[in-house]
Amino acid sequence: MSDKTMNLTLKIWRQKDAKSKGKMETYPVTGISEHMSFLEMLDVLNEQLVVEGKEPVEFDHDCREGICGMCSLHINGEAHGPDRRVTTCQLHMRMFKDGETIYIEPFRAKGFPVVKDLVVDRSAFDRIQHAGGFVSVNTSGNTIDANAIPVPKDDADEAFNAATCIGCGACVASCKNASAMLFVSAKVSQFSLLPQGKVEAKDRVMKMVKQMDLEGFGNCTNTGACEVECPKGISLDNIARMNREYLKASLK
């Protein structure tokens, strides 16, 4: 296996804290292996910065397996970078060329305020979930057999597809309106397709949409950018489903 290395120029958004004004700063990095993940490349930069006695760049990360939804970053003009169906932690440096300049910015949205450098506060998504992204199930007493309620295979598959949303916020970051509709629609869909979710269907969609608007996200204009940039390939079908759910709930 070849092991090409590359030298890069990084232009990174640096911001001391939420209140400070940020700016782009330039950092050269050398000897980056093409097999490194993007976050490993940033680790190399940070080690270099620490050695130089400078403040390392703050960025969000956790599992580094593409499943937790913690990593973010707007890389060279796209959420999670130029690759498709991957999170930043699964983006490899082979996607870049030796000598390239890479722009790294935080996800930008009024609903995602910057905490520091590349870290943004995505707790708006938590509040939307708290507003209605759940089913009320009595967990005391006897456990109910999961297969006691029959679910058509197609519905189960679609609900599962919606449930693969990791809540990273790439949809908001990519949308020209900073709309959170793809995320909210996935969280509405994963329940609305299943019998267990039907009980609270009306309240769920109304409350979650209300909270989404309160958080300051923009309006969806169906550009489809969210679907393209979503690392889990969440479909626009979910937004259409949420629109139907919302219309149904408002007419009831």
Binding site: K11, H74, G77, E105, R108, S174, K176, T223
Partner: peptide, 25 residues
């Protein structure tokens, strides 16, 4: 106007053409 407000700080580098058509944007 509302959508413009939803992104109060713009990206320095943005490639909207990579994921959405000119017409839709």
């Amino acid at each position: 106007a509302q959508n413009n407000k939803a992104r109060n700080v713009k990206y320095v580098m943005n490639k909207p053409g990579e994921n959405a058509s000119w017409m839709s944007r």
